[in-house]
Design a protein around this nucleic acid. Structure first.
Lengths: 238, 238
DNA sequence: CGAGCCGTTGACTGATCTCAACCTTTGTGG
DNA sequence: CCACAAAGGTTGAGATCAGTCAACGGCTCG
């Protein structure tokens, strides 16, 4: 057993066994979902909160011209819409990028969760880290050329997936297509393809069968200009 | 008297006179700041929370090559670092884009503020709207060409500034330079300049002496593909 | 009156996009 | 087990949006 939510929140707060049990109890009854399944539509006022247990999902906005922009990757341990009750309605959709499992948590259970003194700040920490990631993605689109943009995304995923135990032998599963990477980074599919080849030629990455291997993470980080502080993983001194 | 913080939060929650008095009390003793003054450095663990009362500031990340990406505009009524205590350290800086006034609020006062049942959710609403704006900026950089990108930014500023009473006769103050707009939208200064001229020629905007006039907002919105729902200003039905 | 910042313009370069074709892998039904 | 279709990956050629460099003009402020 290894619960990605618990693994993630352990980085935000010191939890005790009771906290862990509370969180574990939430995660029963996961629901199986296919790739491309829409978890939440833009405009929805979901009654349940969704938590990714396995597989990848993404936040996405659809444009009038038929294109779309992927706004975030949601990996195991990530909430999709924890705070939607505060905002009222979703301003974007949530879509699966792979098959996966998701648990539905009622608003009442979320409210109950927020009464736990160590869990509540950890949940807000997760929300604020999501926002910090969003800021770094803006830097990525605004300032970095395509090759560094790809490399930076890979570094971030490496760090985030390592956090929940999904990196093994410097490798992790990348279920999304090149088109979806393009929709994430504001690049055309063709250019993503050529850029990936360039990264492979430079021996910065290997990508085959939806598995990404990063043999030399420091080198990839240097290439991308990756500074991981925005993930706020350093133990925080009181 | 018109307090931008109160005006803004009235859109998030129903406040009573006591709430308004509490908020008003916070905003005494504003500090005057020059353009380009750094409010907070990246890495700081501020003891005080900063609230913009007049003028513009921005969130910004500096790149190793000397460039920078502006991540958000902070306008009157916006908090700079309301939740920094949860994250531990700032992952970006806050810099003034114009002269302005800012109030410093101690962490203790913020904690006290969060005990008010109507104010607390309004503060989280403000944080989540900031995140929603960030998502839309990502769409802006990832999907829209330069002219629509500029137009979209102007539409958003119009809406946000109208909220705090800073739009008069379809016009508002735009204190930032073209270079700073470029740093915001991931465009070169030269290209911002040419794109602005193009918008002027199309009679979509007028910009002179740091005042932006939008005579026909619906037309500008249509041009930009602006959908304001991400600002979450609609009155929320319970 | 000069310095410096900001805005403007022209010429050239280059990163990325589009379109279109073709190849490879995967999944499915016969 | 094969045949085919569909999806995803790859390649080439040409177009274009946006960047760079460099010069110049006009304010503003000391």
């Amino acid at each position: 057993m290894s619960n990605p939510l618990i693994m993630k929140l352990e980085h935000a707060a010191v939890l005790n066994d009771e906290d862990r049990a509370t969180l574990q109890r939430l995660c029963s009854n996961p629901q199986y979902l296919e790739k491309r399944a829409t978890l939440i539509q833009s405009g929805d006022r979901p009654e349940n909160v969704h938590l990714i247990m396995s597989g990848f999902a993404c936040r996405v906005k659809y444009m009038p011209n038929g294109r779309r922009q992927i706004l975030a990757f949601l990996v195991p341990g990530d909430f999709c819409d924890l705070n939607v009750a505060i905002l009222g309605a979703m301003d974007h959709a949530i879509v699966m990028l792979s098959t996966g499992t998701v648990v539905n948590i009622s608003q009442a259970a979320v409210e109950e969760l927020r009464t736990h003194v160590r869990i509540m700040p950890a949940l807000w920490w997760a929300t604020l880290v999501d926002e910090a990631i969003l800021r770094e993605w803006l830097v990525n689109l605004g300032q970095r050329p395509a090759d560094q943009r790809l490399a930076h995304l890979f570094c971030e995923l490496y760090m985030r997936l390592a956090l929940v135990g999904l990196v093994k032998d410097n490798a992790f599963t990348m279920p999304m297509s090149q088109e979806e990477i393009g929709e994430t980074l504001g690049l055309s599919t063709v250019h993503v393809n050529r850029t990936l080849q360039s990264l492979r030629v430079q021996a910065l990455i290997t990508w085959k069968n939806h598995v990404l291997v990063i043999d030399n993470l420091p080198r990839l980080k240097a290439f991308a200009g990756f500074q991981g502080n925005y993930l706020h993983l350093e133990p925080r001194t009181a």
